[in-house]
Design a protein around this nucleic acid. Structure first.
Length: 596
DNA sequence: GCCGTTTTCGGCCCGACTGTTTTCAGTCG
């Protein structure tokens, strides 16, 4: 996801800034995280101390999850208190913020060519095999590897049997993944760009439209709408925007360019009387627009980005509201504009009242440092209180997944005691006892029914064996759902945006199974998960299955991820009533109680 | 490289799985 561009030693994550000689480096959290990830990869390929490597990876993860910019945090107590960032990494962050580069990384890059790192992304290739390819065969990237494979040189290497060679050949033949970036990454570039444009004299309004405004999980480019007085020197101003790599087109009303990370930016300048129709037009989606335009045509209008016209007379277009109204429709939330029935629903006054962040009363999937989180129970609780929630479920991992330092029955019981004691001291807030229990290969759970009985919320999830056939994966999950006490199936597809495809699942059957058993599905709000996706979440809603919007927070700051989940839920047409954790505590408990 | 009401040094997560082996290394989560 995060690309490092060029070999000039500067650190540039997607869309970041390079400003040679500048003291104001505009380094984003993602830049720092990418630099640490690259450090980890390069150290890994060199066979360095695994704990040192892990420290870099952990730091990257922590930085990536921060809700505010390091540049603003640096020097504060909050910064000093960041877990996983010790004296050395704090120094490195300071160096990055100050200079935009990291000397330690520069040194490593001299020893390992850029392409070698890319090899780590291929299946079955970890640091050891990559090192073997690099040192024994002088393979410096995917192209070298492709050649070596076809020439039969790889088979001489230890650890590269026929299966792995076939896997590699296939992976190298596949087209590179689409350049869409996760919404949360796009936000890091969209919001500063918006602020920059707003600061230009003569500009009265700026909106980021497109799939960003629709809240899609990934964003392909930024469509920006600028309302400005005639003659505003927009292009001149833009050439001073440090994040812009190049301008590819620049006219009176349209400016296109690319950011440092290659992200395409299209800026349109419109007048205020056209702003609404332009906003609608550039928000899309394309299918939605076609449908609305057809509706306009049926009524004898012509709809374009400049407005709604009858003949040459403008009927509407200053705002989206008046545009919709002129077409006999209530305003449709951008998240719904996919032509998935929203226009018909609007015409019939059947649009859902979409859920909002403030509707959430709790979070039902939260980790602590007891497993793989970074913050202790009490800190998670006070953070949840500060967010105005009235309950959270502590759902640390069960023991099965090694990396998560999961809890066995004994530790889980101790945690439950701790929670009982804590609850006795809390007013107006409740900590629910829970666990994220692994679904084993055969559909059994990693904790016994008797152990789960004491819990308020049992979240179950697949963390292994992603490659099972659809039939076996589905059976496995259905079998797990048969266990009593199970409440929620977490991240049902196991996807990671840009990294891992969803596993094969007969969703219809899972949905039916969930409904029959009185269980719920999760929208996991981690920015790279967003799983369920909008389509499947809507399907669940349509079947009357309750959805939990869960942060899956691994630190106190990550409770903020709930916002991602709400955005996804809105795209799935979810109302407050469709979501489990909008319920007050007693209603929640009732909803969790399963008929058996 | 981080971290500490057991430690400022010596720990740091580890089991499952897969493919490649001839008893196990590497990857994955």
């Amino acid at each position: 996801m995060a690309a490092i561009d060029g070999r000039d030693g500067r650190v540039t994550a997607p869309g970041s800034v390079e400003q040679p000689g500048s003291t104001d480096s505009h380094i984003h959290n993602e830049d720092v995280a990418s630099a640490f990830d690259e450090m980890a990869d390069l150290l890994d390929i060199q066979g360095e101390n695994p704990f040192r490597i892990r420290a870099y990876r952990r730091a990257a993860q922590i930085v990536r999850g921060l809700p505010q910019e390091l540049a603003r945090m640096h020097g504060t107590e909050e910064f000093d208190a960041l877990p996983g960032i010790g004296a050395d990494l704090a120094r490195k962050i300071a160096e990055l913020l100050r200079t935009g580069r990291l000397r330690a990384l520069d040194k490593l890059r001299l020893r390992v060519p850029q392409g070698v790192r890319q090899l780590l992304k291929l299946p079955s290739l970890g640091p050891v095999r990559v090192r073997a390819l690099f040192t024994a065969l002088k393979i410096r990237g995917p192209d070298d590897l492709r050649r070596a494979l076809s020439e039969g040189r790889v088979e001489k290497l230890r650890g590269f049997g026929p299966t792995i060679r076939a896997q590699l050949t296939q992976a190298l033949a596949e087209t590179p993944q689409s350049p869409r970036i996760p919404w949360s990454v796009a936000k890091q570039y969209a919001e500063p760009l918006k602020r920059f444009l707003e600061s230009i004299p003569g500009v009265s309004r700026v909106e980021i439209a497109g799939s960003y405004r629709r809240g899609r999980d990934t964003v392909g480019d930024l469509d920006v709408l600028v309302c400005a007085a005639r003659g505003t020197p927009l292009i001149a101003a833009l050439t001073r925007y440090p994040e812009l790599r190049e301008l590819t087109a620049g006219g009176e009303t349209k400016v296109s360019g690319k950011l440092r990370n290659g992200l395409q930016v299209d800026i349109r300048v419109v007048s205020s009387e056209s702003f609404g129709s332009a906003l609608h037009y550039f928000t899309g989606s394309r299918d939605h627009n076609i449908h609305v335009r057809r509706r306009a045509q049926d009524r004898g209008y012509k709809l374009s980005e400049y407005g709604l016209f009858r003949g040459r007379r403008r009927i509407a277009g200053a705002t989206e509201e008046d545009l919709f109204e002129a077409l006999g429709l209530p305003w449709i939330a951008p998240e719904l504009r996919e032509d998935r029935g929203e226009i018909e629903a609007a015409a019939g006054r059947r649009l859902p009242r979409l859920i909002e962040l403030k509707d959430l009363r709790g979070d039902l999937h939260v980790h602590t440092k007891a497993s793989d989180g970074v913050d202790p129970l009490k800190k998670m609780v006070s953070a949840a209180q500060a967010r105005g929630l009235s309950y959270i479920a502590i759902t640390d991992h069960s023991k099965h997944v090694g990396v998560t330092h999961g809890l066995d029955a004994e530790r889980l019981a101790r945690q439950a005691d701790e929670i009982d004691a804590l609850n006795a001291t809390l007013k107006g807030f409740t900590v629910l006892k829970g666990a994220e229990v692994d679904i084993l290969d055969d559909g059994k759970l990693a904790l016994a029914d008797a152990v789960l009985r004491r819990l308020d919320v049992v979240v179950i999830a697949v963390h292994s064996q992603f490659g099972l056939s659809q039939a076996r994966q589905t059976e496995r999950i259905l079998r797990a759902l048969d266990r009593p006490n199970v409440s929620i199936l977490a991240h049902p597809f196991g996807r990671l945006l840009g990294e891992r495809a969803p596993y094969e699942l007969d969703f219809e059957r899972v949905l039916k199974g969930i409904r029959e058993r009185g269980c719920c599905l999760e929208i996991n709000a981690q920015p790279l998960r967003l799983d369920l996706d909008d389509v499947h979440a809507k399907a669940a809603r349509d079947q009357g299955v309750l959805i939990a919007i869960s942060s899956d927070a691994h630190s106190a700051d990550q409770l903020a991820f709930l916002e991602n989940g709400v955005r996804q839920a809105r795209r799935a047409w979810l109302t407050r009533d469709d979501v489990l954790n909008t319920r007050p505590l007693e209603a929640l408990r009732a909803a969790l109680r399963r008929e058996r």
